[in-house]
Design a protein around this nucleic acid. Structure first.
Lengths: 226, 226
DNA sequence: CCCAAATCGGGAACAGTGTTCCCAATGAGG
DNA sequence: CCTCATTGGGAACACTGTTCCCGATTTGGG
């Protein structure tokens, strides 16, 4: 059971499609229609080929998913170090978030499987380089990057959970609020959740981007300390 | 399209099974065999009933998933406030992590859908109460809880990604390391990822629990500052 | 140049999924 | 006791990932 990455690709004499073409087609489908719609037959249709031909290049659907992750990770330009660890780590975090918002299925995949493709490793390497500007301690560097990665993944997932909920039910932001609103009002009126009520009534409604930035700053504060 | 929570349950005269019984059976199946194995027919078999009878209580599979989240959230005992916001928030975070490790499918679900069940709201309320000990500013309280929640979700997901990868492929920790090892060695030997190499070779191998605790402490540090 | 052999693309089929339609049996009310 | 709504659940549909296999095509050798 070898990994996709350590196996030379299947390349026929007259090569009608390549590993990359398959992965790119899958990305296109997932971007446009969501992960649920990403079936083998759908990808094959996108390429104008037979369904089972895909299995010449790919062993599993899971392998295809691994490849997709690495394909989109190629979009992110290399992180250039400025000497300011805080600025560089922030840039890295924001770039990761932007990527995951551009491909709403990416977060879901990263949750479920460890990413080991070359582009994933490249970005990991860049992030570690940025953190190495802060401290020579390799263990601390690893901890810092883990922390930031975890936060980005969690924050974006929560954000996507809402977006995807809309897309799946076909409801707009407005319709969704309208359908949930009464329930929330009822909950608040019950008086059983006073702090939750206060949160809904009194807290400023921040953008997802603002929330993300706030959390990231707090994390960077904490990182700087120890 | 009303929510599950604002709809009175389907309760027949002679009630052979309740909403809760269905949800609990689903939880049992998911705990034992994973989310993939959680099919309607499987749940029905668990209950010894016909498959389509489930649809008397539940509208969708998605509704069932929402119910499952709330069922397990009931396990967590109420968070008692000690007056020390830092200790209370840490306790809350660790409790959430423990719950998600006990039910490995929970993280995946929370990533994909916003949780609005009564038990979810209760815990949200408790967390907000803990953070309210730090500051009277409702917006800041919301930001703090969002940050912590995001981190817990992200950290546990990464942890579960590995565990689930083992379970899915049926490989043990040992076998997995053995199958990935050569690829990693090759990557390191290539010299293209120096910081990644340093990370693998020099950084101490921390437990997931240790990593989680480290990140959480940094976050609490940052929260205390501003 | 021609034929044999290896390679390639992809159709058919299988076991499984969520969900809808509908029908038979059951129990309550008059 | 009979009527009739209520309830459980079987059959069927349109899908899914994947394996097996076969016909077509291209290549290498004589």
């Amino acid at each position: 059971m070898s990994l996709v990455w350590s196996r030379e690709p299947y390349s026929p004499r007259r090569q009608a499609m390549s590993l990359e073409r398959v992965a790119r087609a899958a990305v296109a489908v997932a971007d446009a229609e969501g992960l649920d719609a990403l079936s083998m037959r759908r990808v094959a249709a996108e390429l104008g080929s037979g369904t089972t031909s895909l299995y010449r290049h790919i062993r599993n659907r899971d392998e295809l998913l691994d490849l997709m992750v690495d394909v989109v990770r190629d979009e992110v330009p290399a992180l250039s170090l400025s000497g300011d660890w805080r600025a560089d780590l922030a840039a890295h975090a924001h770039a990761q978030r932007a990527l995951m918002l551009r491909h709403p299925w990416l977060g879901t995949l990263l949750m479920i499987r460890p990413a080991l493709g070359p582009n994933s490793l490249r970005q990991m390497n860049e992030a570690l380089a940025a953190a190495a500007q802060l401290t020579p301690d390799a263990t601390r560097v690893a901890g810092v990057i883990g922390l930031i990665g975890d936060y980005v993944l969690g924050a974006v997932s929560r954000e996507l959970a809402e977006l995807e909920a809309h897309r799946r039910t076909g409801q707009s932001e407005q319709e969704w609020r309208a359908s949930v609103g009464p329930y929330i009002s009822e909950v608040i009126a019950s008086g059983d959740y006073p702090h939750f009520a206060r949160r809904v009534m009194e807290a400023r409604d921040l953008t997802f981007t603002e929330q993300f930035a706030y959390g990231l700053e707090r994390i960077l504060d904490g990182i700087g300390g120890g």
